[in-house]
């Protein structure tokens, strides 16, 4: 067949295919962008222009209803907000961080490993977690006889530096002799959670590969007494600087025995 003939049989295909497809597009635009928003907007008391803009996404809100408003005042449980810039500052260990850390030796040990198990170990803790707690002491979101005063003496930059310093220190070795036989139900709570109480697995935030909230602390290698006391504080609402009750809502569902056993498990057995 000659090329001219071929073009001839192809031409109607080209034209009709384009016409049909563009018509369907036009139909959808007329109904989706004009008819539906205008009709729905009228019923909701919106003018046609607003309704169309909302339907297309230029203005916020639905074309079919009025937008509610809120005049509530912010009453944040913490002043810490994670930002790209803040996240980038973690991870660079500085001399200044080591110097500030000298002020922590008395309670948190020379290398960030506390002698008194009532105090937390800081060595190997996540920088974001240390930053959040120091910042909360400073702003009053978390209160402690000693820590509040110390944190108020630190600038934001210094908080980042000392947090980064401890994050990169070697953590406490687990002492195998202190490891206890762990109950099956405690391991279950750590790895699987308890569906009947709506309790997520502890490791879904505190595990090594968790991907939970940014400020989640590492619990492995922490001191048992400290862990148990904090869980009790969350449970009784004595401590409430967790964003959106993430820890309070968990701790309140734990029994006192579970709190003891979980603290022991993380402090003596779990290692990553």
């Amino acid at each position: 067949m000659k090329p001219a003939e071929l073009r001839e049989i192809d031409r109607p295909w080209r034209i009709w295919a384009s016409v049909i497809i563009v018509s369907i597009l036009a139909f959808s635009v007329v109904f989706g962008f004009l008819v539906l928003p205008i009709v729905q907007g009228r019923a909701a008391g919106l003018d046609a222009f607003t309704a169309i803009c909302r339907a297309v996404g230029i203005l916020p809100g639905s074309p079919a209803v009025k937008q509610p408003t809120s005049e509530a005042k912010a009453q944040p449980t913490t002043q810490v907000a994670w930002s790209t810039d803040l996240m980038r500052t973690f991870g660079r260990r500085t001399q200044a961080g080591a110097e500030i850390a000298q002020g922590c030796v008395a309670c948190h040990g020379e290398h960030g490993i506390a002698a008194d198990p009532q105090n937390p170990n800081l060595a190997g803790q996540s920088a974001a977690a240390i930053y959040k707690q120091l910042h909360d002491y400073k702003s009053g979101s978390r209160v402690h006889d000693v820590m509040t005063g110390i944190a108020q003496g630190l600038e934001d930059r210094q908080i980042v530096e000392v947090a980064t310093h401890f994050a990169s220190s070697a953590r406490r070795d687990l002492d195998p002799t202190t490891a206890e036989v762990v109950d099956e139900d405690v391991i279950r709570l750590v790895e699987r959670g308890d569906p009947s109480r709506g309790l997520p697995a502890c490791n879904s935030c505190h595990g090594f590969n968790a991907g939970g909230p940014i400020e989640t602390p590492t619990l492995s290698h922490q001191n048992r007494e400290y862990l148990a006391r904090q869980l009790q504080a969350f449970k009784t609402d004595a401590r409430r600087n967790d964003i959106y009750t993430r820890m309070r809502s968990v701790a309140v569902k734990l029994t006192d025995r579970e709190i003891e056993r979980l603290a022991t498990f993380y402090a003596t057995t779990l290692s990553y």
Partner: peptide
Amino acid sequence: NIETIDPKTLHLTGEFTE
């Protein structure tokens, strides 16, 4: 309703404060 709100500061806003 394409209504934006910054997730990084959500807990500091009035409407979604705890």
